[in-house]
Design a protein around this nucleic acid. Sequence first.
DNA 1: GCATAAACTTGCATTCACTGCATATTTTCA
DNA 2: TGAAAATATGCAGTGAATGCAAGTTTATGC
Lengths: 217, 217
Amino acid sequence: MPRDVSSPAAPGDTLRARKRAATRLAIRRAAIDLALEHGYDNVTVDMICEASLVSQRTFFNYFGSKEGAFLSGAKALPPPDVVRAFIDGTGSSVFADLFTMIAGTVVDIDANLELFRARHQLIHQTPELLNQEKARIGETEDAFAGFVMDRFHFHGRTEADTPDLEDEARMVVALVFGAMRFVMQKWVAGNFTETREELVRAASGLIQRITANEHWP
Amino acid sequence: MPRDVSSPAAPGDTLRARKRAATRLAIRRAAIDLALEHGYDNVTVDMICEASLVSQRTFFNYFGSKEGAFLSGAKALPPPDVVRAFIDGTGSSVFADLFTMIAGTVVDIDANLELFRARHQLIHQTPELLNQEKARIGETEDAFAGFVMDRFHFHGRTEADTPDLEDEARMVVALVFGAMRFVMQKWVAGNFTETREELVRAASGLIQRITANEHWP
DNA sequence: GCATAAACTTGCATTCACTGCATATTTTCA
DNA sequence: TGAAAATATGCAGTGAATGCAAGTTTATGC
């Protein structure tokens, strides 16, 4: 099976790597096009293989499962130095810093806009895939919750002082991801025209409004 | 196939209904016990069927999928009148009202505590099941977001005034569910000893602390 | 009570996702 | 170029899931 099946195409890369990327892309394209045409459930792995000219075995070498060919590939975690900067960050607002970090990472997206949009459409019209996607996002949230915990610790907050510190971290992440979802939606709906700054500003306003105008129990 | 396969056992109910409930429970028990012993992936549907004395076909009549036998059964939505009360509610805090409504519903849980705990343990040690469970929770969140929207509308807030009203609703729900998760965790960890009031108070304090001490971007 | 309908269970055959293993085929690199 | 490493493929098998056409059990009207 391939050594690293998920690396994106690098221009001046070795032949092997470029072929790998091409195969990967061909399978994805075929999968998504077929599913948009016939519906996810009516597409078999064999159909995808035939359309993309690979054997079924190769398909499963690239994507461990049928769903794998349809979901976004990259792990979407920020590079380690960015994470470190966040953890050691002196910014007064965890929300602001976290939001900025995530926005910088996530909005990077696939170079291939057309494929990205096709996949987005497909996922959002296929409950099965949508659930998987949500699960993926959930895992990402867990990772970010870990970063927030690290930041708390770095700033001297411990479970000794605050027993439910981890819950606090999770809630912060949940809220920021809510805002992210909002951003992504607007971005997709608006045909990807807004700048990152505009989106961040809008989302930020939303969080502020919600939390400011509330009476707490 | 059974007419309504998911109804819980009613004491003075017809023989048929009681048998249905018994079969359902037997399958669940067998499934969870087997998985706790051998691991989810090493348990086949046939093994469950043999242990619970039903045919494979019957298994799939009851639970549409293998996973179905392991996940919590009920939809866990509050009864319509409670929902209506929430929507028309005059309470000044959506958070407080929503939290109270959810707490009242969710903490109801299965009559069978032992089975509940066994399932909980199994799910949290099986990534596959955990993802499914999260997806289920996600769907529930969607439903509640709908209720919050209805409440907004009822109180005269419209998308015309606030274009991102739905995002606001989703974030409210996300936050409250974060608190709920916290509550559930404490409840399970503490061997189900705390009263509902204690839990609600703790979660409420958590939300308050998080949002009060923040500087917003 | 009993016959008949309705609800429920089962067996069987089939499709499809997925895996392990052995065997080509291609790419790399000394 | 020729051996080694990386990929691709074929094949056989497992297990989940579904439709259909019987059986079997429970409910109901008389």
